[in-house]
Amino acid sequence: MRNVWIICRKELGSYFVSPIAYLLLTMFAVIFGFFFWNALGYFVLMGMESQMRGQMFPMNLNEEVIRPLLSNVSVVGLFFIPMITMRLFAEEKRTGTIELLATSPIRDLEIILGKWCAAMILYACLLLFTALNFAFLFRYGNPDWKPLAIGYLGLLLQAGGLLAIGTFISTLTKNQIIAGAATFGVCLLLWVLEWVSGYETATWARVLSYMSVITHFESFAKGVLDVKDAIFYLTVIFVGLFFTSRSMESLRWRS
């Protein structure tokens, strides 16, 4: 556990010493801020219209603002995840520092978990910026915090899975660009797999759409904690990290 934390701290150090972390945070904050502004503008317009029509039933902030925004975050996250994970192992392999880690008295699993945790923490920092925007809703409105919390849990689980896959891909190459591009491709594929469910209901289509990371986010966005979906994400995390450790081991046998 101690070693995991040492590695994690070192990774966080290199994220925040270099411009990577600040670049990602800024880009994410701007993009999400734009989404939030739009969603809010639309919400206000709808509110005024329904008032003019004399409809008095209450509008729901959770349904109309938070839910679509959380879905947006989950999609935008797909684009940011490759940028977080691409350097994790690829850079160590390129500079040769992997040799230092591999000849130190720490286990491969501790290295992998440390790096993955650092990636998770950086992603959680991105989410903090969205929380800043949502804080305005709580200041001026009265949304329910529980669905929002479950939404965040879903985002973290989904990102955890994709970050684990990205970590695995990063062990396969010395080249960060290749690691980033491949991770981006896989993330994108895992997103669009869901589209087949739109026109096909055969078993293969159901399987494909089940494998999509977006399918499993819907319940979280609604604020419903579905154990099946949580287990799906946990499985992806486990499989991703398992492959990473296999890949690290084979690195030694091959290199």
Binding site: K10, G13, S14, V17, S18, T95, G96, T97, I98, E99, L100
Partner: peptide
Amino acid sequence: TPPLYPEM
């Protein structure tokens, strides 16, 4: 090659 992290 000494295993150094260039940013540290």
